[in-house]
């Protein structure tokens, strides 16, 4: 029996037989189909995935002509902060443009939440103006809605994470509704200023990290921004594969937000006026790469089919079938990219 070198969702290497690989692909796609109530992948798509997973090449690539564009989240946090390269943000952006040849880039602050940016907005707009003089590629400005920051002890509002375990449900819901009002104001304010300073796009990153209220606040902010600036480009990047119901009774466009999966999330984002949708599917660290990949591609395919706007799939550590490890292996990353584009029909990554 032939053995294929592959990995688990935490990146640790393993070898599996062809039968095991095929079984994991099938179980993975069925898991997505069952959870999302969407079609599973067809046999020929599973065969294509099998081929991608089992190629002997260390890295693989999309076929010529299938290339897609990339956008970044936490753009300027990567080189100067996470990689510890002592360079300023505009050098980081130019390195991306001129050396890495990224299609786009994002200016971001270490304190990556809209709430925190209010106080330093003038420094941030100045940085954007400066960066725009020197760059050719489109530059986003990005941050997280991060609704949790509006609660005690970081903010003025009662903390629903504390209220919920005490079964103070109506209080927890009221707190979330109150936090939304503050968050919307901050997102609209910061995004407006950055757009006026020349940002080519605004990235709402990790939408939903605090649950459904976080999503509703972001949708409303997009709606307001789009009315104010019809030409503004907004990327709406999610935080998880389904919207966590911390509130449970929040609606947008008549749809309950809690529990929506990517193919449903993209429709509300579109309705609010988002330009690009950032789909997220979580990686399960315990399962194999094949299982995670089949599952992710199934969700992504349903999402791109439902979408009228471009979908950029989030392929960072621990999402988009990428192993949840600090140094995701290139064999897995390149395979995930190829599969997401060729079978998932992603418009970008």
């Amino acid at each position: 029996m032939s053995e294929f070198y592959t990995r688990y969702g935490d990146g640790s290497p393993t070898r599996v037989s062809a039968d095991e690989m095929r079984r994991d692909l099938e179980v993975g796609t069925n898991d997505a189909a069952d959870r999302g109530k969407i079609p599973a992948l067809s046999q020929s798509e599973l065969d294509h995935l099998f081929d991608i997973c089992t190629r002997p090449d260390k890295t693989v690539s999309v076929e010529r002509g299938n290339e897609v564009v990339v956008t970044f989240d936490a753009g300027t946090l990567k080189l100067p902060i996470r990689a510890g390269v002592p360079m300023d943000r505009s050098s980081a952006i130019l390195t991306h443009e001129r050396a890495f040849c990224s299609d786009t880039m994002e200016l971001a602050h270490v304190d990556y939440s809209y709430k925190q940016l209010k106080a330093i907005i003038h420094e941030e707009t100045a940085a954007m103006e400066h960066v725009q003089l020197n760059t050719i590629i489109p530059i986003f400005y990005g941050a997280m809605p991060n609704l949790g920051l509006y609660t005690k002890p970081d903010g003025p509002i009662e903390n629903w994470s504390e209220l919920l375990p005490l079964a103070k449900i109506s209080e927890a819901k009221a707190a979330q509704e109150e936090a939304m009002e503050h968050a919307i104001k901050d997102m609209v304010y910061v995004a407006s200023r950055m757009y006026e300073a020349g940002a080519d796009g605004i990235n709402f990153d990790t939408v939903g990290a605090s649950g459904d209220a976080d999503v509703l606040a972001s949708l409303k902010a997009v709606e307001i921004l789009k009315n104010k600036y019809p030409d503004i480009a907004i990327e709406f990047g999610m935080s998880g594969e389904f919207i966590l119901g911390m509130h449970g009774d929040l609606f947008f466009d008549g749809k309950r937000l809690a529990g929506l999966y990517p193919h449903q999330q993209v429709k509300v984002a579109e309705k609010a006026g988002a330009t690009i949708f950032g789909a997220v599917i979580n990686t399960n660290s315990s399962r194999t790469f094949a299982w995670n990949l089949a599952r992710t591609v199934t969700f992504v395919k349903a999402c791109t089919e439902a979408a009228s706007i471009p979908v950029h799939v989030n392929v960072g550590m621990g999402v988009g079938a990428i192993p949840n490890s600090n140094t995701p292996a290139v064999d897995a990353v390149s395979r995930a990219d190829k599969a997401l584009v060729e079978i998932g029909k992603a418009d970008g990554l």
Binding site: V70, E97, R98, F100, C101, S102, D103, T104, I137
Partner: peptide, 13 residues
Amino acid sequence: MGGIRTAGDLVAR
């Protein structure tokens, strides 16, 4: 797509 090495930035725009 390759950014300014190719036409990546233009397509992104």
